[in-house]
Deep mutational scan, measured.
Amino acid sequence: MATGGRRGAAAAPLLVAVAALLLGAAGHLYPGEVCPGMDIRNNLTRLHELENCSVIEGHLQILLMFKTRPEDFRDLSFPKLIMITDYLLLFRVYGLESLKDLFPNLTVIRGSRLFFNYALVIFEMVHLKELGLYNLMNITRGSVRIEKNNELCYLATIDWSRILDSVEDNYIVLNKDDNEECGDICPGTAKGKTNCPATVINGQFVERCWTHSHCQKVCPTICKSHGCTAEGLCCHSECLGNCSQPDDPTKCVACRNFYLDGRCVETCPPPYYHFQDWRCVNFSFCQDLHHKCKNSRRQGCHQYVIHNNKCIPECPSGYTMNSSNLLCTPCLGPCPKVCHLLEGEKTIDSVTSAQELRGCTVINGSLIINIRGGNNLAAELEANLGLIEEISGYLKIRRSYALVSLSFFRKLRLIRGETLEIGNYSFYALDNQNLRQLWDWSKHNLTITQGKLFFHYNPKLCLSEIHKMEEVSGTKGRQERNDIALKTNGDQASCENELLKFSYIRTSFDKI
Rank of each mutant, 00 (worst) to 15 (best):
P187R: 03
T140M: 08
L128W: 01
E49I: 11
R256P: 02
E168V: 10
K129Q: 11
D169I: 08
R69Q: 12
L64Q: 04
M321P: 14
T211F: 09
T329L: 09
R297Q: 11
R263L: 11
S98G: 02
P269Y: 06
F275Y: 07
C280D: 00
T229K: 05
P187T: 11
I40V: 15
P336T: 05
S284M: 12
D165P: 14
T199H: 14
K100Y: 08
D184G: 15
I158T: 13
Y273V: 12
D184Q: 03
T320K: 03
I122H: 01
M125S: 06
H307Y: 09
D72M: 14
Y272L: 15
T267Y: 15
C186N: 02
V253D: 15
G241Q: 05
S213L: 11
R208Q: 15
S225H: 12
I62D: 00
L332W: 13
K310W: 14
N42D: 10
I222E: 14
Y87V: 00
R74K: 12
P270F: 07
P270A: 13
D72E: 14
C280S: 00
N295E: 07
I185V: 15
T85G: 02
C268T: 00
Y171R: 01
W210E: 12
R263A: 11
C53P: 00
G192P: 05
C264A: 00
I222L: 05
L106C: 00
S324Q: 08
A156I: 10
E180Y: 08
Q287F: 14
R263Y: 07
G227K: 04
N135W: 02
G95L: 02
H59T: 05
E130K: 12
V305I: 04
P220R: 04
C280V: 00
T157L: 10
L60T: 01
I84C: 01
R208V: 00
R110M: 11
R92Q: 07
F103P: 00
V108D: 01
N150K: 09
C335N: 08
V34L: 06
N309L: 04
F103Q: 00
T250I: 04
G318L: 05
N105D: 05
K176S: 08
W210Q: 08
S98N: 08
D39W: 14
P187C: 03
T250L: 10
H290R: 03
G32D: 14
L136V: 07
N138E: 05
N43H: 07
K148Q: 09
G192I: 01
G95T: 01
F205G: 12
Y273M: 15
N138L: 10
V265T: 09
V34F: 15
L60N: 00
N135S: 08
C228L: 02
S237I: 11
L332M: 13
S77M: 14
P316M: 04
D165T: 08
M65I: 03
T85I: 05
I312L: 12
V265E: 04
A119S: 10
S112Y: 06
T199N: 11
P270K: 05
S213E: 12
K217G: 09
S237E: 14
A190V: 10
L174H: 15
C153K: 10
G95H: 14
H290A: 08
P249N: 13
T107Q: 13
D75F: 08
E49A: 07
L106R: 00
T211A: 15
Q287R: 15
G132Y: 01
P270H: 09
T107H: 10
S296Q: 15
S296F: 13
C268S: 00
C235L: 01
M321R: 08
Q61N: 04
C53S: 01
K129Y: 08
H236E: 06
H236W: 01
I40F: 05
D75V: 14
L260F: 06
Y171S: 07
S244M: 15
E130F: 12
K217P: 14
T320W: 09
K217E: 14
C196Y: 03
D159L: 07
E151G: 13
C223V: 01
L133K: 01
G232W: 05
L63M: 08
K224C: 05
Y304L: 04
I62Q: 00
G132V: 01
H212W: 08
Y154K: 11
D248F: 02
Y304F: 15
A230L: 03
P316L: 03
G262Y: 02
F116N: 15
E57Q: 11
L99I: 10
I163P: 00
I139P: 01
C335T: 07
M137W: 11
G183T: 07
A198H: 14
T85H: 04
K191S: 09
P187Q: 04
Y118N: 03
Y319F: 13
K193T: 11
T189N: 09
Q276R: 08
T320A: 08
C331W: 15
G142R: 01
C280Y: 00
P246I: 14
L63V: 15
R279E: 02
T211D: 10
P271M: 06
E151K: 14
M38V: 06
E49C: 11
A198P: 11
W160D: 01
P271N: 04
K100V: 08
E238P: 01
S317I: 09
R141C: 03
N308S: 05
T189M: 07
R41M: 05
R297H: 11
N195G: 08
E97D: 04
A190R: 12
I163N: 01
V218K: 13
F258M: 06
C223K: 02
V144M: 09
G203P: 06
C228T: 02
K224E: 14
S324W: 14
L63H: 10
D165I: 06
E147R: 01
S213I: 09
L326N: 13
P220Q: 08
L50E: 00
E180N: 06
R263W: 15
D248G: 02
K129F: 07
P249Y: 03
W278R: 01
N43K: 09
V173W: 01
C35R: 00
E238I: 01
T189Q: 08
L289K: 15
L88K: 00
G232F: 03
F103S: 00
L81N: 00
E130Q: 09
R297F: 04
P246S: 13
C53H: 00
N135Q: 10
Y118R: 02
F283T: 09
G333T: 03
R256V: 11
S323D: 15
F66P: 12
R145H: 13
E71W: 03
L63A: 07
G333N: 05
I82P: 00
V108W: 05
P197L: 10
Y304H: 03
L128R: 01
Q204T: 05
P187L: 12
C35K: 00
K193V: 03
S317W: 14
G227W: 08
C234Q: 02
D178S: 08
I158V: 07
C186Y: 02
N282D: 01
L99S: 01
G318P: 03
L44Q: 04
R297W: 06
P197F: 05
